[in-house]
Simulated assay, not measured.
Amino acid sequence: MASFKQQTFQERAALAAQAKQAALEKLRAKPPVDEAVAAERRAAALAKDQARAEASAAKKAMRDQEKAARDQARAEQKAREEAEAAAAAEARKPYVPVLPTEAELKAARDARYAARKARAGR
């Protein structure tokens, strides 16, 4: 059985140079990108970005609309609760009859007196 042999620095450097040269040749062998294809890809990416932005804007508008509806519902609920509280407070107040004033009593008495005189004078 053969034992493991350590590589020297020169051997490692040579292997790295060969790998680098192979990568460069592979890159050079690759056909150049056609301008029409590149422009088509850019247009597709731009359209995708625009669609994403429109979807995001629509989503934000929907969230804003839902938030406005929730806020309005909360405001209506608060107004209802305040109205119910005011009605309950009004119901708890004791009944205070409205008594006529002295002038109103005198006017009613005078009207009755005048009616009685008018009947007697027939």
Rank of each mutant, 00 (worst) to 15 (best):
M1L: 15
A2N: 09
S3L: 08
Q6D: 14
Q6C: 06
Q7T: 04
Q10P: 00
E11Y: 02
A13Y: 04
A16W: 00
A16Q: 11
A17F: 05
Q18V: 01
Q18S: 04
A22N: 14
A22E: 15
L24H: 12
K26M: 14
K26N: 08
K26Y: 06
L27C: 03
R28Q: 13
R28P: 00
A29E: 11
P32Y: 07
V33H: 06
V33P: 08
A36K: 15
A36D: 14
V37P: 00
A38Y: 05
E40F: 04
E40R: 10
R42H: 02
A45H: 13
L46G: 03
L46Y: 08
K48T: 09
Q50L: 05
E54Q: 08
A55R: 10
A55S: 12
A61C: 04
R63W: 00
R63E: 06
Q65W: 01
D71C: 06
A73P: 04
Q77D: 10
K78C: 04
R80T: 06
R80I: 01
E82T: 07
A83I: 03
A83K: 12
E84F: 03
K93Q: 09
P94F: 04
P100G: 00
T101M: 02
E102Y: 06
L105D: 04
K106G: 01
D110G: 03
A111K: 10
A114G: 05
A118G: 11
A120M: 07
G121T: 08
